[in-house]
């Protein structure tokens, strides 16, 4: 891969820092949403996750942004799972026949 998991982790930490001003206030919500996505997708390593969790405990804006992204992701997942296309009844048989099983 051109980007290894450790480079990915570095990206997380660098990007996370850039979301905040020197005073520690969230200033880049768009970038922060990308960070939240990694946390929600379980792609952040333990260290990055811990930095993130500490921050959202103390920053209301970050916490709200996290909750909003979480809610959207959960809803998308729920609805997509509820509306799965029904598989044709004969598909399994057709596949098995086509490979002579």
């Amino acid at each position: 891969m051109s980007e290894t998991m450790s480079e990915f982790s570095d990206w997380f930490k660098d990007t996370f820092k850039q979301c905040y001003c020197k005073k520690g206030n969230l200033v880049d919500e768009e970038r922060f949403a990308e960070i939240v996505q990694l946390v929600l997708d379980n792609e952040a390593d333990a260290e990055s996750r811990s930095i993130f969790e500490e921050k959202i405990k103390t920053c209301v804006k970050s916490s709200m942004s996290y909750e909003k992204e979480k809610c959207i992701k959960d809803e998308i997942k729920k609805k997509l799972c509820e509306h799965k296309a029904a598989m044709p009844a004969n598909l399994v048989t057709t596949i098995r026949k086509s490979v002579d099983l």
Binding site: M1, M5, F8, W11, A33, E34, E43, K77
Partner: peptide
């Protein structure tokens, strides 16, 4: 979101770097 693949698995399925998976998903 539906199939629960990790970024690494997605990068292999789609033949794209992990960074591209991340940005595309975003």
């Amino acid at each position: 979101d539906l199939e629960g693949f990790t970024y690494e698995e997605m990068s292999k399925i789609l033949d794209i770097p992990i960074g591209t998976v991340r940005s595309r998903l975003h």
